[in-house]
């Protein structure tokens, strides 16, 4: 089953295509010097329009995870790990992803991870592996 891919637009394109240059790009507000996610045209913290995508290290920790066992659709290749990864740049800066290249039972909260992109069509999915 091919993955469902996001519809790209001016706000989210950097996040989904940064991997083309091997860069994880998170939206950053120059006015209050904070990252925010999901990306948008205005900073939700201070309402400044002085925002743009900014490269981050791609390193973080698992904030939580689940091992999906349920075959919601055919050829899902379960079990697999879904996680919320919190990036090292800022507390609370996090997003949902998959952790790959490890036995599913080895994942834990607090596990250090780093990004690894997988291209599907014109989207570079930011997946993570154990650091």
């Amino acid at each position: 089953m091919p993955r469902k891919l996001p519809a790209l637009n001016a706000d989210n394109r950097a996040f989904w295509q940064g991997g083309k240059s091997d860069a994880l790009l998170m939206h950053y507000c120059h006015s209050c010097t904070r990252f925010f996610h999901p990306p948008g045209p205005v900073c939700p913290n201070c309402a400044s329009f002085d925002v743009n995508p900014r490269r981050v290290s791609g390193r973080g920790k698992v904030a939580s995870f689940t091992i999906n066992h349920q075959p919601w659709v055919p050829e899902l290749n379960e079990p697999f790990v879904i996680a919320i990864v919190e990036l090292e740049e800022q507390a609370g800066l996090r997003f949902v992803t998959n952790i790959e290249d490890l036995a599913v039972e080895d994942v834990f909260i607090g596990m250090p991870v780093r990004v690894r992109f997988r291209q599907e069509d014109d989207v570079w999915l930011p997946l993570f592996i154990k650091e």
């Binding site: 996001p6 904030a63 939580s64 995870f65 689940t66 919601w72 909260i109």
Partner: peptide
């Protein structure tokens, strides 16, 4: 959902399971 379905989050149970795990 665009932030979750590309990672094969196909049910709300996946997201809520992460609340339970935490």
């Amino acid at each position: 959902w665009q932030w979750y379905t590309p990672f094969n989050v196909l049910s709300a149970s996946n997201l809520i399971a992460m609340y339970a795990q935490r």
